[in-house]
Amino acid sequence: MILHHVQTSALNDNALAVCLRFCAPQDSIVLSSDAVIALLDQQWLNKLKPFNIMALADDVAARGLTEKHLAASSIAINLISMNEFVAQSLTHQKVITW
């Protein structure tokens, strides 16, 4: 069980695409920094849907994104703090930063 960590926007970088190519069904993905923008894009949301998705709450809030914006995403997104990110790093077997 892997925690995949993506930091860059899927519109600029292949990190999220490559991560999704090799993500196993039981894995989780945490989106941080510009990677949270994928939550606004239906194409990426469809690809994220099968997985347990988390996003750093501070990065979402920093970009002016609110519950309202994310409500349209139609997938369950856990907004987590940095403390929870650390806890998740330990409940998963390893963290891969893409």
């Binding site: 940095m82 990110f85 650390v86 806890a87």
Partner: peptide, 15 residues
């Protein structure tokens, strides 16, 4: 990303 790394370190220590 470096700022994120620093915050992560702080959270590790806080835990």
């Amino acid at each position: 990303s470096s700022y994120k790394a620093l915050q992560y370190c702080q959270a590790v220590i806080a835990a």
